[in-house]
């Protein structure tokens, strides 16, 4: 399968280029430190000793999801547009690798390059909590929390951060994205119609609520689009994750023709 091999090649190189970017690591470190230091009384650091490790690590994953994806969205915003800016669009168009493989590879490589620092942050949190709570199960729950809370949101954010700048520009997308992140994840749906608390929150509200056994942020809270706000639980967690992954597909499907249009006008 040539296409699969080419997708894998793009994935590897995209990951390699991205993971070397100092801005990725600085953004991750700064946001993680800020979130750790400013967490309120409900933050995972203040959970009493004896709290199940599942709740502790779900708390950390949720806490990091408040801001880390914003940083990742910013860093990823130029990944599809930059080939043209760098003067590589014509060469890439002339190679016998299709735009589909290119987009898929950039998606997978971009996702991997944000998943690695995000996972490292959670493992660091697990290490710190282990020193404090002496429970090795914290590491296992860090992995579960990462898979259920962090990763689906990153998959969603990566797709939109790659493709939306093809419709606008990378700087404009960054501004809009910050606005969306707060409106769609954290703005109290009681105050203003928002997606906060629905199944469509990439923050991981539903999975976190399920793991913590109590409402994490707003999951299922009354508000706009009532049908998207079922009672949080195991089934709705699966549903929320499936919806996020499903929603990542349309932008990815649109990307090859958008890329073509953009490269042609080079």
């Amino acid at each position: 399968m040539t296409t699969a091999r080419q997708t894998w090649a793009v994935t590897r190189y995209e990951f390699r280029m991205q993971i070397r970017k100092r801005s990725l690591w600085i953004t991750t470190a700064v946001l993680a430190v800020v979130l750790t230091l400013t967490q309120g009384d409900r933050g995972p650091r203040h959970l009493p000793l004896g709290t199940p490790p599942r709740e502790v690590m779900a708390g950390w994953a949720l806490l990091m999801s408040i801001l880390l994806p914003i940083g990742f969205g910013m860093v990823l915003a130029d990944r599809l547009t930059r080939d043209r800016r760098l003067g590589l669009a014509s060469l890439l168009e002339s190679l016998p690798t299709g735009r589909g493989a290119l987009v898929a590879g950039k998606y997978l490589g971009g996702l991997a390059s944000t998943a690695v620092p995000a996972a490292l942050v959670l493992l660091t949190a697990a290490a710190a909590e282990t020193a404090h709570r002496h429970d090795p199960a914290l590491f296992a729950w860090a992995v579960v929390a990462f898979a259920l809370i962090t990763l689906p949101g990153l998959a969603f954010v990566t797709a939109f951060a790659l493709v939306c700048p093809l419709l606008t520009t990378a700087p404009l997308f960054r501004v809009l994205f910050v606005g969306y992140w707060f409106w769609g994840n954290m703005l109290n749906p009681d105050l203003f119609p928002s997606l906060t608390g629905t199944l469509l929150t990439p923050l991981g509200d539903y999975p976190a609520t399920w793991l913590m056994g109590e409402r994490a942020l707003y999951a299922g809270a009354d508000g706009w689009l009532e049908f998207l706000r079922p009672q949080p639980g195991g089934t709705t967690t699966v549903l929320a994750i499936a919806l996020l992954l499903l929603l990542s597909l349309p932008p990815l499907a649109l990307a090859p023709p958008l890329l073509r249009r953009r490269n042609l006008s080079a």
């Binding site: 080419q6 190189y13 390699r16 970017k21 760098l86 003067g87």
Partner: peptide, 19 residues
């Protein structure tokens, strides 16, 4: 033609070769 600034010559050629 532009080049990826954060790759080495060897890596860039390897990437193009794969593509």
């Amino acid at each position: 033609l532009g080049l990826y600034p954060d790759l080495s010559a060897q890596e860039f050629l390897d990437y193009v070769g794969l593509l």
